[in-house]
Simulated assay, not measured.
Amino acid sequence: KPKTTVDFRVEAHKSSDVESLLEQSGLEYEILIENLQTALDAQFDNNVRSTGYNYEKYNNWETIAAWTADIAAKNPNLVSRSQIGTTFEGRPLYLLKVGKSGSNKKAIFMDCGFHAREWISPAFCQWFVKEAVTTYGTETLMTRLLNQLDFYILPVLNIDGYVYTWTNYRMWRKTRSKNTGSSCIGTDPNRNFNAGWCNVGASRRPCDDTYCGSAPESEKETKALADFIRQNLSTIKAYLTIHSYSQLLLFPYSYTYSLPENYEELNAISKAAVQELATVYGTQYTYGAGASTIYPAAGGSDDWAYDQGIKYSFTFELRDTGRYGFALPESQIKPTCEETLKAVKYIANYVLDHLY
């Protein structure tokens, strides 16, 4: 639509042709990243040498998987690990349950790593768990949240894709499933849910980045997530899904311009949450309903969760707004996670005060 910004990537040998075309068309443009490969290489810029697990580095899947076992073993009073399924390539989908054990507790479900190249997303899920176990008992708000709520944390949903970004192609987005009748691999997991499935902002072509899959929940990963939420609908009161980038806090709907029943409430929560976030480093977030705030897109997990009756459903698009994009340097992991944590704790506290 007019007056929106589009970020795109150009191969080096075509860049001068593209610049000429942009100038001829009278389009305003700005070069955000001169050399993407250099920016990707620089993602491993961190010299932090800490003993034990490093939360200020991007960790590969093997490291994250080992961490899920370790953090549960070291914090049995607060963290337990289960497996909710396997990926297309057979990797275990580990889920961490974080909270002080108690009866009849309501829960918040949070997932990271839907899109393979959005590395800051799994980094945040790891950071959240670290903060939970290290500040429980000393920090009032976190202690209150963990005493009265459970958090289900899925550190990486699209594990196969994430592994592929480490081994083959850094900018991969989709799952790694095979598509019948096509040599193109993968489905966009965030177009694969039964929420206006494939009617807008999604593609039916398997080669496209936004391919919606052969049917809703065609992917083992999305089906495992949906099954778990369906089985626990009586307790899950909020759904948070962490993506990047754009600095947005979105809520339903994305598959339609119609507004959710509790639009005013979701809008007010989002406004307050992004204000909380900005208190740490002044980072500015935009908020609103998905379709009008970013673009219409069907089949998203947030819309699906909302339609299941989870009335507090949010999508975070973390830093930045394009200067680094998916190539966000490791030096920004800590500040990004610190500010995001403030917003997540605000939402969780609101949910706790407004249980339904």
Score class of each variant (00 low, 15 high):
residue 215 A to Y: 03
residue 236 I to F: 10
residue 220 K to G: 05
residue 221 E to M: 07
residue 210 T to L: 11
residue 240 L to N: 01
residue 240 L to M: 13
residue 226 A to C: 08
residue 231 Q to M: 06
residue 216 P to Q: 05
residue 228 F to W: 12
residue 231 Q to C: 07
residue 215 A to E: 14
residue 239 Y to F: 15
residue 234 S to R: 13
residue 211 Y to H: 01
residue 207 C to K: 05
residue 215 A to C: 06
residue 218 S to G: 02
residue 225 L to D: 00
residue 235 T to F: 12
residue 216 P to C: 09
residue 227 D to R: 06
residue 209 D to H: 10
residue 221 E to C: 01
residue 223 K to T: 13
residue 220 K to V: 13
residue 231 Q to T: 09
residue 222 T to S: 04
residue 231 Q to V: 12
residue 226 A to M: 14
residue 228 F to D: 05
residue 239 Y to L: 01
residue 207 C to T: 14
residue 233 L to R: 08
residue 236 I to K: 06
residue 220 K to Q: 11
residue 211 Y to K: 13
residue 210 T to F: 05
residue 208 D to F: 06
residue 212 C to Y: 04
residue 220 K to A: 07
residue 237 K to G: 04
residue 228 F to P: 04
residue 231 Q to H: 14
residue 218 S to W: 03
residue 228 F to V: 05
residue 235 T to D: 02
residue 213 G to M: 12
residue 216 P to Y: 01
residue 236 I to S: 07
residue 212 C to N: 02
residue 232 N to R: 11
residue 217 E to F: 15
residue 231 Q to G: 09
residue 226 A to F: 14
residue 209 D to T: 07
residue 209 D to P: 00
residue 240 L to R: 01
residue 209 D to A: 15
residue 229 I to S: 04
residue 209 D to Q: 10
residue 239 Y to S: 04
residue 220 K to I: 12
residue 227 D to G: 03
residue 221 E to T: 15
residue 208 D to G: 00
residue 214 S to K: 10
residue 219 E to S: 07
residue 229 I to P: 00
residue 233 L to S: 13
residue 209 D to V: 13
residue 216 P to G: 05
residue 234 S to L: 07
residue 222 T to H: 05
residue 225 L to Y: 12
residue 228 F to K: 03
residue 232 N to K: 03
residue 229 I to W: 00
residue 219 E to W: 14
residue 215 A to R: 14
residue 224 A to L: 04
residue 218 S to H: 05
residue 224 A to K: 02
residue 208 D to H: 09
residue 218 S to I: 09
residue 227 D to A: 12
residue 209 D to L: 15
residue 228 F to C: 03
residue 239 Y to R: 01
residue 222 T to G: 01
residue 230 R to Y: 07
residue 219 E to G: 00
residue 228 F to R: 08
residue 220 K to T: 10
residue 234 S to N: 03
residue 225 L to G: 02
residue 225 L to I: 13
residue 215 A to H: 12
residue 214 S to I: 08
residue 212 C to L: 08
residue 225 L to R: 10
residue 232 N to I: 12
residue 224 A to T: 01
residue 234 S to Q: 11
residue 226 A to E: 08
residue 231 Q to K: 14
residue 233 L to Y: 09
residue 240 L to P: 02
residue 218 S to L: 11
residue 239 Y to H: 10
